[in-house]
Simulated assay, not measured.
Amino acid sequence: MAISTLDTDTRNAALQAANTELNDGAGSNATYEYLVAGGGTVLIAWDLDGAAPFTTAGSTTAGTAELTGEPITATAVATGTAAEYRIKDKDGAIRRSGVLDATLAVTSGSVYNLSATAAMPAS
């Protein structure tokens, strides 16, 4: 099997297309959530920018993009250890999900900042 490598223009285009999907739906905002392991409990839900959740147009570099308006703040709705994340579009459909680089102890009622980068790998 061959291993493919994407050039920067292709990586940028793919990332911009993926970020456009976050604007699908009739709701006002896409959301970025932290959850406990196994995804059973949402600990924090950040509302993303309603027009452009990730800054990509004209500024995507080497397949990466930053959250628009970061850091974004939200109040935790539950207590637990955040181990996973998911990003939902404006209709609540899960568009991205995964495991966090490091776990985070979350306390209900506390305010948390979110700064994040979306990346499209070269291979």
Rank of each mutant, 00 (worst) to 15 (best):
A2C: 06
L6C: 05
D7A: 14
A14P: 00
A14E: 09
L15Q: 04
L15T: 01
L15M: 12
A18T: 06
A18P: 00
T20C: 07
E21A: 15
D24I: 12
S28W: 01
N29P: 13
A30H: 01
A30Q: 00
Y32H: 06
Y32T: 00
Y34W: 13
L35G: 01
A37K: 09
G39M: 02
G39S: 11
G40R: 06
G40I: 02
G40W: 08
T41N: 11
L43G: 03
I44C: 04
A45I: 02
W46H: 04
W46C: 03
D47T: 09
D47R: 02
D47K: 07
L48F: 00
D49C: 14
A51N: 13
A51H: 03
P53L: 08
F54H: 03
T56N: 11
T56V: 14
G58P: 11
G58D: 10
T61I: 13
A62V: 13
A62W: 12
T64M: 13
A65P: 02
A65N: 06
E66S: 15
E66H: 12
L67D: 01
A74N: 02
T75F: 08
A76Y: 05
V77R: 06
A78T: 02
A78E: 12
T81P: 05
T81A: 14
A83I: 03
E84T: 12
R86E: 00
I87G: 00
I87H: 00
D91P: 00
D91M: 04
A93L: 10
I94P: 00
I94Q: 12
R95L: 08
R96Q: 13
S97F: 13
V99F: 09
L100K: 04
D101N: 10
D101L: 10
T103M: 04
L104T: 11
A105I: 14
S108K: 14
S108D: 14
G109M: 07
V111W: 03
Y112H: 02
S115T: 15
A116T: 04
A116E: 03
T117F: 07
A118R: 10
A118P: 01
A118Q: 12
A119Y: 09
A119C: 04
P121M: 15
